[in-house]
Design a protein around this nucleic acid. Sequence first.
DNA 1: CTTGAAAAAGCGTTAGC
DNA 2: GCTAACGCTTTTTCAAG
Lengths: 159, 159
Amino acid sequence: MKDGTLDELDRSILYALQQDSRHTSSGDIAEREGVSASTVRKRIQRLEEEGIITGYHVAIDYETAGLPLHAKLVCSAPIPQREELARQARDIPGVEAVREIMNGHNNVYINIIGTDHDDLSRIGQDLYELGLDIEDEQIIRNEYVCPYRGFLARDDLDW
Amino acid sequence: MKDGTLDELDRSILYALQQDSRHTSSGDIAEREGVSASTVRKRIQRLEEEGIITGYHVAIDYETAGLPLHAKLVCSAPIPQREELARQARDIPGVEAVREIMNGHNNVYINIIGTDHDDLSRIGQDLYELGLDIEDEQIIRNEYVCPYRGFLARDDLDW
DNA sequence: CTTGAAAAAGCGTTAGC
DNA sequence: GCTAACGCTTTTTCAAG
């Protein structure tokens, strides 16, 4: 497993936690897979320690929460500083997600959340001062996160 | 709250769950905020019922997991069908996230995960057959999800 | 690597303020 | 709307195959 080879139990655990990481107990997964709850807990612990599981996050509908300004910024960073700038961008209030892309240009995508248009401008300004060029800004209308079904064996698809 | 006005306790709960939605108990949050654990549980329940909390997901390092092909597709959909196509795209195996953008063009962003290059091609083909034009494909190098610090009052920033 | 069992912690519900 | 108290579930920690 250290070489990234996940067995069926590991994949089943990841799939279950992608669907609901808070209300799915080790026992639930254990029952489906025919192993003990202890085994599932040990596996989860190992996946966390190995860095395959990097965290557990709540998904929020920002519009319903009264924060309707959910936007995506397409930015460009000089390649040598891309990783560092992407890391620094995470600390700017309002930044929700950062993705580094293997491009020469438009190589950092940043999702941001603002309380109003002034707030969005402020975030853009902060990123610019960091050294990121903002190439484009787009309003996000809807966002869905999907469990990666590749973790499922073909004969489990009827979950 | 029905009108999207979250009070300090709600914001504190959301912030805590963004950081670690699996290992943070109601009691942990209650202690920090000086209320009872029951109160926090009720609030979480309400946030879920109101649709502000839409789910809990595990964050996975796909590269460490042995799935190094993490890519982003920039797609275009005709506006009238954008929402429907975005919904259908979620059901294609390998699709990890879908974002609808308020654009005339390049209005659907899709993150995908593939086992190899053939797998990526297959996903692209599936999306094309759905009716999505693929404008660009980019390899994701790194991805970070950040707690939205706007949920924190200014004097709580030292958590 | 997996299991089982006891103690501790957490959760959902109910009742009361 | 907040809290306390109940019974049930889950996690933790340990020992062991």
